[in-house]
């Protein structure tokens, strides 16, 4: 069960095709990572799931997105959210004129059981011990790392079943990235959460995941378990940054050239 994308095509504005027959599976309780260079279609994949494609004038034109067996293809984002699929968009999208406390409250806006909400707040403070000191601060003036904690905390306040994170490490110092991924792994384990993570920072992301997909030019080009990907030569070279021998590097260039062609085609 879990979240399944079957042969999904996404077209923006009726003309620009971004996803081509993408197949992806996020089983319950697992952390799945989606890797790929810029423009590979990672964010589009997340938006195809969360329904946020609509505000970019995009839509799923073929294939199906299902969650625990229910078809959610092109469903209303509010309906998808209430099924427990929550996307944290990239670019630190805090509600910048509201306080940290209000941001967290907005996360729980669908829940009327105030006691449970307060318990969850305590849990979020447990994962991010810095947050309680920031409650009265205006969210727009937090540092990048603090914003990212707030965003994940806000998403947790909705009690999601599936948490989708779009490049949480963007623009953060390496040490913060490490802390952040540790926190995500801890949350996933303790809450029994299903996580779909989009990352450029492949090394940090792969180290925490159960399964990974690599996208390129709107297609899934490679997928496998953590061990499979960590040992894969291409992944090592393109995403983990292990330099190869001279000849290998030239091959790398050729491959980049071929990829480029594929993208244009």
């Amino acid at each position: 069960m879990g979240l399944v994308l079957a042969n999904v095509d996404v077209v923006y504005g009726g003309v620009i095709q971004v996803l081509r027959s993408a197949n992806l599976e996020v089983p319950d309780g697992q952390m799945v990572v989606l890797l790929g260079s810029n423009g590979a279609g990672k964010t589009t994949t997340l938006k195809a799931i969360s329904g946020l494609l609509h505000s970019d004038l995009g839509s799923v034109t073929a294939g199906h997105v299902t969650f625990n067996g229910a078809d959610i293809t092109n469903a209303d984002p509010v309906a998808i959210f209430s099924r427990g699929i929550v996307q944290v968009m990239e670019g630190r999208k805090v509600l910048e004129h509201l306080t940290v406390e209000q941001n967290l409250a907005v996360g729980a806006h669908r829940r009327s059981d105030q006691k449970a909400v307060r318990r969850d707040l305590e849990r979020v403070y447990g994962y991010f011990p810095k947050l309680p000191d920031l409650l009265k601060r205006t969210a727009g003036y937090l540092s990048g790392g603090e914003m990212q904690m707030l965003l994940i905390g806000r998403a947790l306040m909705a009690r999601p079943k599936v948490l989708m994170l779009d490049e949480p490490s963007m623009g953060l110092a390496p040490m913060l990235v490490e802390q952040l991924f540790q926190a995500i792994a801890k949350i996933k384990k303790e809450e029994g959460l299903t996580v779909l993570l989009v990352e450029q920072n492949a090394r940090a992301a792969i180290s925490q995941c159960d399964y990974a997909y690599v996208m390129d030019g709107g297609r899934i080009v490679l997928h496998g378990t953590r061990a499979q990907l960590e040992n894969n030569q291409d992944v090592q070279e393109f995403y983990l940054g292990y330099g190869g021998a001279e000849g290998r590097n030239r091959f790398h260039n050729i491959k980049h050239y071929r990829r480029r062609k594929r993208w244009l085609g």
């Binding site: 984002p77 944290v88 968009m89």
Partner: peptide
Amino acid sequence: AVAENHDIALSLG
């Protein structure tokens, strides 16, 4: 939240 940003509001259901 809607006053602040429509996309964020939508992503929060």
